[in-house]
C-alpha cells in the first residue's frame, strides 16, 4: 500500500483532475458523515436532535450523554451504563488475542519451517475454518459451554474467540514465515539450536510487523464480534457490542439518541484508536484476508 505512485503517470487534463478531486471529496464526505453525526449528536441535548437538528453543530454543548452512556444508562437490570460491559470486552479481548497470536505464530513456524507430509491439507482445513458461517457451530458450542459451566462467562467467550481466531493468526504467520529464509533455520540447527530456541532467537526477533498485524486483526475482530456475544453471554457477562445493541434497542422510556451515539462511539473507540495508531498494519491485515494479499 505504501508503494510510491508509478512514475509512468497516466496523464490527466485539468478538467478531469478537478472532477477527480470532486468525486474523491464527495466520497470522503460520505464516509465521514456517520462519524460526524455520531460525534456532534453525542454532545448535544436530546431536544436539539428531536427538533430536527441532527446535522447541525450543537447549540448547547454537553458531555452528559457520554457520562450517561458510560455509567448510568439502563442496560441490564441495573442502571450501570456501558462501563461494566466495556471491561467485559477488555477482559475477553486481551487473553483471546494474546493466546491466539502466540499459537498462530507457533503454527506458522511449524507449517513453514518443519514441513511434513500432509501439512498443506492441514493448513487448508485450518484456513477453511476461518470462513465458515459461525451459525454452523452455535448450537454445539452452546451445548458445550453449558456442559462446561461457561455459559454467560467471559472465560467462555475467550475460548470461543480463541478457537475461531487461530485460523487467521496461523494464516498470517504462515504467509510471513513462508518467505523467511529457511537457510537461517538450517544454520541455527547446525549451530545446535533446538526447535524452540530457533523460534525464540531467530524467527521471533524478526516477527514484529506480522505480530502487529495479527494482534490488530484479532483485536478488531474479537472486539467487534456480536454473534458469539449475543449467543453465549447476553446477560451481565455481555461484551460491549451486545450491551450497546441492548441500549439502542431498549423499548422502555424515551429514546435517548444522544446517549446512543455516545455509546456507539465508546464501543468504536478502542478499534478506532488502533486504526488511527496503526492504520497501515490494519489494512495489511485486511488484505491478508484475501489469502495472498
Amino acid at each position: 500500500m505504501s508503494i510510491a505512485s508509478q512514475d509512468a503517470g497516466i496523464r490527466t487534463g485539468r478538467v478531469a483532475r478537478t472532477f477527480i478531486y470532486l468525486v474523491l471529496l464527495l466520497f470522503a464526505l460520505f464516509y465521514l458523515l456517520p462519524l460526524y453525526v455520531m460525534l456532534v449528536n453525542s454532545v448535544k441535548p436530546l431536544s436539539e436532535i428531536t427538533g430536527g437538528g441532527m446535522m447541525s453543530l450543537p447549540q448547547v454543548w454537553t458531555l452528559e450523554p457520554w457520562a450517561k452512556a458510560w455509567s448510568t444508562a439502563q442496560i441490564g437490570v441495573e442502571p450501570t451504563g456501558l462501563r461494566p460491559y466495556f471491561w467485559n470486552s477488555i477482559s475477553m479481548v486481551v487473553p483471546a488475542v494474546a493466546i491466539s497470536t502466540i499459537l498462530g505464530a507457533l503454527n506458522g513456524y511449524v507449517l513453514t519451517k518443519w514441513r511434513f507430509r500432509g501439512d498443506t491439507i492441514l493448513f487448508g482445513l485450518m484456513l477453511f475454518a476461518c470462513f465458515i458461517p459461525f451459525q454452523i457451530v452455535l448450537i454445539p458450542m452452546a451445548a458445550v459451554l453449558g456442559t462446561l459451566g461457561l455459559s454467560g462467562t467471559t472465560a467462555g467467550l475467550v475460548l470461543v474467540h480463541l478457537v475461531y481466531g487461530i485460523g487467521f493468526s496461523t494464516l498470517y504467520f504462515r504467509n510471513y514465515y513462508a518467505v523467511f529464509p529457511t537457510e537461517l533455520v538450517r544454520a541455527a540447527q547446525i549451530d545446535g539450536a533446538g526447535f524452540f530456541r530457533i523460534f525464540w532467537r531467530i524467527l521471533l526477533p524478526s516477527s514484529g510487523p506480522i505480530s502487529v498485524v495479527c494482534v490488530i486483526w484479532q483485536f478488531t475482530n474479537i472486539w467487534n464480534d456480536f454473534l458469539f456475544g449475543a449467543s453465549f453471554a447476553s446477560g451481565d457477562g455481555a461484551p460491549m457490542t451486545v450491551a450497546l445493541n441492548n441500549l439502542v434497542q431498549s423499548s422502555t422510556g424515551v429514546k435517548e439518541y444522544n446517549v446512543h451515539f455516545a455509546g456507539a462511539i465508546l464501543a468504536a473507540l478502542p478499534t478506532l484508536l488502533v486504526y488511527i495508531v496503526a492504520g497501515r498494519y490494519f489494512v495489511r491485515g485486511l488484505m491478508a484476508g484475501s489469502v495472498k494479499g
Partner: peptide, 24 residues
C-alpha cells in the same frame, strides 16, 4: 489523508455502523 477516511469504517463494529445509520 484521503485513504484512511475511506478505510476507517472497516474498523468499526457492525453494531456501531448499524446504530449510526439506523438513526440517520
Amino acid at each position: 489523508f484521503i485513504r484512511p477516511i475511506f478505510l476507517y469504517p472497516m474498523a468499526l463494529s457492525f453494531i456501531v455502523t448499524g446504530t449510526a445509520w439506523k438513526w440517520m
